Simulated assay, not measured.
Amino acid sequence: MKVAFAGTPEFAAIALRALIAAGFDIPLVLTQPDRPSGRGQKLVTSPVKDVALAHGIAVHQPEKLRDPATHAPLIAAAPDVLVVAAYGLILPPAVLDIPRRGCVNIHASLLPRWRGAAPIARAIEAGDLETGITIMQMDAGLDTGPMLLAERLKIGPDETAESLTDKLANLGGRLIVEALTRLDSLKPTPQPEQGATYAAKIDKAEGRIDWTRPAVEIERRLRAFDPFPGSTSQLGETTLKLWHAELAEGAGRPGEIIAVGPSGIVVACGEGALRLTELQKPGGRRLPAADFLRGFPLAAGERFSSPGNS
Rank of each mutant, 00 (worst) to 15 (best):
T8M: 07
I26C: 14
D210M: 09
G308T: 06
A150K: 14
D143A: 04
L298T: 04
L142S: 06
E125G: 05
S233I: 03
S263A: 15
A6G: 15
L298Q: 04
T160Q: 10
I14Y: 02
E159V: 01
L180I: 07
G195N: 08
V29A: 12
L28V: 11
W114H: 14
A290M: 09
K204T: 11
V3Y: 05
P146F: 07
R182Q: 15
I20G: 08
L153K: 02
E237I: 07
G301C: 09
A78S: 13
W243S: 02
E278A: 14
L89Q: 14
T160W: 08
R208E: 12
P146V: 04
M1I: 01
T8A: 10
L149M: 15
A4M: 08
D210A: 15
A69S: 13
D25I: 06
L171P: 00
R66D: 15
R294F: 06
R152V: 14
A224K: 04
Q61G: 01
S310L: 12
S306A: 12
S310M: 07
E217S: 14
P214L: 13
A123I: 07
I90M: 14
F296V: 01
P27I: 10
E217K: 12
A150Y: 12
P297T: 03
L175K: 04
P190L: 11
I98M: 08
G250A: 10
E130C: 10
I90H: 04
V216P: 01
K167R: 15
I20V: 14
A21M: 07
A86L: 03
G172L: 00
A76C: 06
L19V: 13
P227C: 08
L148K: 03
R275Q: 13
E206S: 11
P307A: 13
T144R: 13
G102W: 08
P27M: 13
V44I: 15
L274I: 07
G127F: 07
P188D: 03
P229L: 06
A13M: 09
L298M: 15
L19D: 05
A169K: 00
